[in-house]
Design a binder for these strands. Structure first.
Lengths: 305, 305
DNA sequence: TAAAAATATTTGACAAAAGCAACTAAATTT
DNA sequence: AAATTTAGTTGCTTTTGTCAAATATTTTTA
């Protein structure tokens, strides 16, 4: 634990410096960092109040009041007394305010550009993935919407390994599975890729800012489609991504004229089980399997298409 | 590119808030954030100067001068005129200053603890890994020392997939290899794990804050040891990690009484090639291989033990 | 239903933080 | 030896942020 705390503190110190450097530039403009943060919030929200700002940005309300008065005086912002509650003033940017934000955004974009410009494409991507990971963990997946997730089905270098890795840590964390399970997953991917037939086999990958957060696949066996590798990063559950992936795979199976679709799963994956059943899958048989964990029932579910 | 910039800006905004919350607490102490940052730097460095502080922390030298005078007055810090350069004053903490830092560190640790306490162990680990990734990318691997890297050889869930993933993106980035290569790597791991004999086969993993940054393995074939999966995260090169991993694998092979050690590599991995030759490996044969890329020579190197 | 409590915002007074520019003293370059 | 550069200091100023009290409105309570 102490090692982790030290690593986090080290990161925080470094990142404080980086943010400081980025903020320095903003200060070249006529606005201070706090002012820009406030303007950004007003711009983002339709219904913004002073209370909201002081809460989310942790600013003194008196300080804010004066700042907002300043914005109003310089024509960036207008205050409108709420019709429902006379204590509240709704804040919004004027056209001038919006233009100002555009300029500030442009400058900020340029800044970030020059930060990541020296990096190669892979590094940039890894950087953004890591940031996305941090955000998703610290916000526990809130603030992510289904539309933010892109689903693709071209397989790129790194995908297979990363999805195997996800199977490893997620099944370990949630169900206590051993390395043997991950090895089994790797095996299934080896088979998948060596027998891969475009148009009949497919792997879908759900990505948030290029970071893989979910997967599902279809493997053809004559007229039957096998559903595999259905997995969601725990911080991306509850937004409908699982349903969307499942639907995508089922739709593909229908379009490809498979007669039925089946999948093997285990008794402890109750959440996924419910999703399968809702989609129309029914149990075909069950048997015991102790490869990855004790007391495990292996189930086969199937659905006619 | 714009997507990445937006993601980074989103992260920066969120992290500004998080750091702000953490800093709030520090301000409960008698010291301001800037003061704590300065004290921390003086504590960290043996030879610290005002110039260094104003450069690294981006602070006004006049402001710093006064702050340092304050520290001296309250007995936290002493200034000593340099014997080599009369303009320079070396800064160091007094015992009182060190004790103050201890208290501040303790408080900061508690703060971070309460930040990550609600998370589960895997999330904490993933958080730290992501932070380590960001630091390593933005500092291009500077500031990492060999001692920071831990080498282990127990295989944990996620390891196999992650190392496969690393092979995928690194060989893609550096040599343009296709997904076929990653699939081949996955295949080798499947074989490795299904034939695994403790004491004869081994996989070493180099970790920085639990993030995998390098690997190497030995697979036994009767009296010959095969060296495999030698890989370094690009941002962790040049610190001697490659040499250490290679040495570890060679030592193990000697101790296990293998008569010789061999490896297969390709002509384009010139850096690794040099390392192998320095270690005593010599070329046995070469042949063409176009599986992963055009115009590739496959080489076998070997060394008697 | 009127008084009390809570909430959103404003205002005044003030202190701390930060920045700029001119300045000293030592070292380096010309 | 004079000019320039560098490290750090000092005086002055502005900006930023805080605290407490005040105002206006709404909600709760008796």
């Amino acid at each position: 634990m102490q090692n982790k705390i030290n690593a986090i503190r080290s990161f925080n110190r470094r990142y404080t410096n980086i943010l400081g450097l980025l903020d320095k530039d903003i200060l070249d403009s006529d606005y201070s960092l706090s002012q820009v943060r406030v303007l950004h919030e007003i711009d983002k929200l339709e219904q913004c109040t002073s209370k909201y700002l002081s809460d989310t940005l942790c600013m003194d309300s008196g300080y804010l009041s004066r700042m907002l008065a300043g914005f109003e005086k310089s024509g960036l912002c207008i205050k409108q007394k709420s019709s429902e509650d006379g204590r509240i003033y709704n804040l919004s940017l004027t056209n001038k305010g919006k233009k100002t934000m555009e300029v500030l955004n442009l400058r900020s974009n340029e800044q970030i550009f020059s930060l990541i410009n020296p990096l190669c494409e892979t590094e940039r991507s890894n950087l953004v993935k890591a940031m996305t990971t941090i955000e998703s963990i610290l916000t526990q997946g809130k603030n992510v919407k289904l539309d933010d997730i892109r689903i693709r089905h071209n397989i790129k270098p790194g995908d297979i390994g990363y999805i195997t890795y996800m199977h490893g840590w997620i099944y370990r964390m949630e169900y206590g599975y051993s390395t043997a399970f991950e090895s089994y997953v790797a095996q299934t991917f080896c088979e998948f890729l060596s027998n891969y037939k475009a148009g009949y086999d497919r792997l879908w990958i759900g990505e948030h800012n290029e970071k893989i957060v979910g997967s599902i696949g279809i493997v053809g066996h004559k007229d039957k489609a096998q559903l595999r590798w259905f997995l969601l990063d725990p911080n991306y559950r509850g937004i409908g991504l699982g349903k969307k992936l499942l639907q995508t795979a089922v739709n593909f199976s229908k379009e490809t004229n498979y007669k039925s679709i089946y999948l093997d799963t285990t008794s402890d994956l109750d959440k996924a089980l419910g999703m399968y059943q809702k989609m129309g899958f029914t149990k075909v048989f069950e048997k015991e399997n102790h490869s990855w964990k004790d007391d495990l029932l292996e189930l086969r579910l199937s659905m006619d298409l």
